[in-house]
Nucleic acid binder design. Structure first.
Lengths: 348, 348
DNA sequence: ATCAAAATTGTTCACGTGAACACTAATTAC
DNA sequence: GTAATTAGTGTTCACGTGAACAATTTTGAT
């Protein structure tokens, strides 16, 4: 299967020089005569030299410091999941000298992000994993990283203007389409569909709008105008607004489905009685309260953004880059999982 | 985050013995006085010694031969997917000296399995990954492995009587329930549900019966006897049998859904016109022909057995065991993915 | 008590890499 | 012509492990 593994010693013998010279050529450390360089390069062209990562790692024998910068899970429990992925990755890679320090910021406080980001930079890590919810502030942060030559991978939020080493996330537009597909397949075919955005910060908007766009595009193609849509942006005072909106809609309108674009789906579920439910409720993310409502039947489908795997992959690729000096993709879109009360157990 | 990494040298110093003695204790190579052993063990209890895998791998510097034994993808294209997973795993682990040789057997020919298994054993691999479709023959094979001290991981088919190092697969009963849940949510609520088993070999039966059991159990709980079931076992002469069964059922009965327990779902789809379809068709596996029918709308849901990941994990665990000398679980059940025409693209 | 055998312990090498260091030959300065 | 500099080359060490090998101590036999 795999060919003979060449070592620098082999190359040295083939090129009739010393191992030192081979090494100088490989790492462009200069102090090599034109003639010797030519001989070595010739050999390198003929064989496919792959440096032995194991030996290199042993030789370097240093601890790679990775820092993570994510929203605090105490404010939004969605962010517990990435932590699990990070810990799994740590478990896999600490034998290769990877160490991880986690930093958290308040997702409702831009200045807190800046502050924590500064502390992170000051700790001089070798690589960074972050979920950059605040675009403007993140770009400043990324600029600093770039200046320092610090590689960073991002998850959850794609800030495509930045020069990240790799973004790991999902196609939000497509996830909206998936929600629509599920709703279309399970609903009665006329009535009004309610779409809820929950957001403490406007910075998330592009996210949710992409989902809504996918959702509506699907219906535009499949549904011949039997249904109408109404969108609600709930920024604050969730309790009060939501209750009155739902009370009103359920009483006066023929609701054929509800789509929530965030992990706050359970907030809507609160006000629904499963026995009276005649329309599907579809939302996002496997947070505890959503899972509870999924199992009880108030929520029909959840779309899994796979935050655990996103974080794992983010650390994975940083390791590939920093420890194994491998190339990594600049973008990886993860599968979009459909979760029901029957398959949820296999995802936990 | 991670504590100081102790080396055998550190232990030697702490226990006031030489590295050689420490090594003899660690590997139980004997020739150590009671007193010295006690000193070393004491230190080992106090610190958490984790041998440096990198150094060990470099030192051992040998190539681990893994052999895989799967049904030929030329006979059933389902088996293409595991090959992809195997190749991905090879790509990940060949830097650690893992090499893989793939063997294939004819899934309709037990004696061919025995023959190929013999060739595999003769090649003297260090570990084996297999999907053991034939129970009796597999048990003989596994016995040989056990005698030779050869670790093997199994995927797809759980032969729980065997002493595999690890089985990677899915909960078949639960996957049947998932299919039922999807059908229940999308169908009209009365009529007859057709269940199809496709199988060239009876050996697969337990598989399919588990799925059927999960499927029916779900309906027993959720459906108040509005629906009836009819099960078909199609062994041979698929073309002819199937067409007449479907023609007959569609003409004379009120069909409310079709559930196919194997990757041969597309065979049923062949005879359905999407425009006339008033009931859901649900089946298994992302083989090309199923994907085509999913996209065209003839198939509504596919359940993904994740053969690619199964194989990847199988190799992964063999590597953990053979290269990194880690402990591995004896069983891992993978998530059961629900696939529709809208999320299929994210899984390919 | 003396020597041989056995038991125990300590030292060294190899794995492949990367870089410091040591060495040789050629060039420059005076 | 000789010393000092520099360019180019080769050698050696460290990383941590595992095992062979060498050295030392203990035990047993006479």
């Amino acid at each position: 299967m795999s060919l003979k593994k060449y070592t620098t010693k082999d190359i040295a013998k083939l090129a009739d020089v010393s191992r030192g010279t081979v090494d100088r050529v490989l790492h462009r450390r200069g102090k090599v005569s034109e003639e010797a360089e030519k001989k070595v390069r010739k050999v390198l062209e003929e064989i496919d030299y792959q440096p032995n990562v194991i030996a290199r790692t042993l030789r370097e024998n240093k601890i790679i410091q990775i820092a993570t910068l994510l929203p605090s899970p105490e404010i939004d429990s969605f962010w517990k999941k990435p932590m699990i992925g990070i810990n799994e990755a740590l478990h896999s890679y600490n034998t290769f000298g990877v160490s991880i320090t986690q930093y958290f910021y308040d997702q409702n406080d831009k200045s807190n992000f800046e502050e924590v980001a500064k502390r992170l930079i000051d700790s001089k890590p070798d690589g960074i994993l972050t979920a950059p919810l605040f675009k403007k502030e993140a770009l400043v942060f990324f600029d600093q990283c770039h200046t320092l030559g610090l590689p960073y991978t991002t998850i959850n939020t794609d800030i495509s203007e930045s020069q990240y080493a790799c973004f790991i996330g999902q196609d939000l537009y497509q996830s909206g389409r998936i929600a629509a597909d599920l709703m279309f397949k399970t609903q009665k075919k006329s009535g009004k569909i309610l779409i809820f955005h929950f957001d403490e910060e406007i910075s998330n908007s592009p996210h949710m709008q992409e989902k809504e766009r996918g959702f509506k595009d699907y219906f535009a193609k499949h549904d011949t105008n039997n249904q109408t849509f109404e969108t609600f942006n709930l920024i604050d005072a969730i309790e009060h607004n939501l209750k009155s909106i739902l009370d009103n809609s359920l009483k006066n309108e023929n609701i054929s489905g509800i789509f929530v674009t965030t992990s706050k789906t359970f907030e809507v579920a609160k006000y629904l009685r499963p026995t009276l439910k005649t329309f599907p409720l579809i939302g996002y993310d496997l947070v505890d309260e959503n899972i509870k409502n999924l199992k009880s039947g108030k929520i029909d489908f959840l779309i899994n953004q796979n935050p655990k795997k996103q974080a794992f992959q983010g650390i994975h690729y940083l390791t590939e880059l920093l420890v194994f000096k491998k190339e990594i993709p600049t973008k990886e879109l993860l599968p979009i999982d459909i979760i029901t009360k029957e398959n949820i157990s296999t995802y936990l």
